[in-house]
Design a protein around this nucleic acid. Structure first.
Lengths: 141, 141
DNA sequence: ACAATATATTTGTTGTACTAATTATTATTA
DNA sequence: TAATAATAATTAGTACAACAAATATATTGT
């Protein structure tokens, strides 16, 4: 029972390094965006005009965190909050022209940065990792 | 090249949930400690009286983060900073009696909590996960 | 011994995570 | 319809993460 305890440290330090590496490369390429902000930008490009709850679900952020990420992205004119026509409590998050433009500019470069971690691994490794992580995720829900 | 991009979100959300689950269970068991503080406590039990640099390396924290974690642990009397006899710049981090006591009390319960994620997975899965995560970690060093 | 350099830790700043509490609005139901 | 509950988003407080810069002490090369 004890022997598997180490996976949590392993997971923690790996995901930290993945994020850190991406952030460092973002900076080198002068992206002027954080990794978490990028995640939101990418999701919005796949499906624009979502409310914050949907967006929080998709990006795996909780509501307060997403609120602050969006605050920062609004300041940078990447997204804007628009009143929802059918529910006056909620906002529609809308990707601006600048946001769209940046997203298109950055996507291929980000893919390249992400691929770096996969240089010494195989397709099967990817499938295994996906399965194992999802199993862990579900076990703790 | 693009298809592997998703691993980063997967890693991020899984490690987040692992931490979140442990923290929730810690609270339920009234441990009065954070997951990150626990990691430090456990490492100190394996080898007491390390300086902050060694401890930072082992726990995967950077130095400023560790400084702040130790500040909180000192306040709780779990550890204490002692002057190093051979280097006046550095501190020896010493597990107190209370720290030792708590560590022993909590270890078996924490192992049980950690094992929860592994219920539906095998020994081979564990080896695979370890190998893949370490490969990613090394690729980005 | 002196200057340059390296090491150990702290401080400051910005961003993210989680909890709890708050406000505003919508939905339920008695 | 009035009271109650649920939902969307925000705010406040505490903890952690990454980076840069500051401080103090050690080490190295000359």
């Amino acid at each position: 029972m004890e022997k598997y305890g180490a996976y949590s440290l392993l997971l923690d330090r790996t995901s930290k390094r993945v994020k850190q590496y991406a952030q460092k490369r973002f900076k080198e390429e002068n992206f002027d965006i954080t990794v978490d902000q990028w995640l939101v930008l990418k999701n919005l490009n796949d499906q624009n005009d979502q409310n914050q709850s949907q967006l929080a679900e998709l990006t795996g952020k909780d509501h307060p965190t997403l609120t602050r990420i969006l605050d920062l992205m609004c300041k940078k004119n990447l997204v804007e909050r628009k009143a929802s026509p059918e529910d006056r409590r909620s906002f529609i998050i809308h990707l601006t022209e600048l946001g769209k433009q940046k997203q298109e500019e950055w996507v291929p470069k980000v893919d390249k940065i992400r691929a770096k971690a996969w240089e010494s691994l195989t397709e099967k490794d990817y499938q295994d990792l996906k399965r194992i992580l999802n199993t862990i995720y579900e076990s703790l829900s």
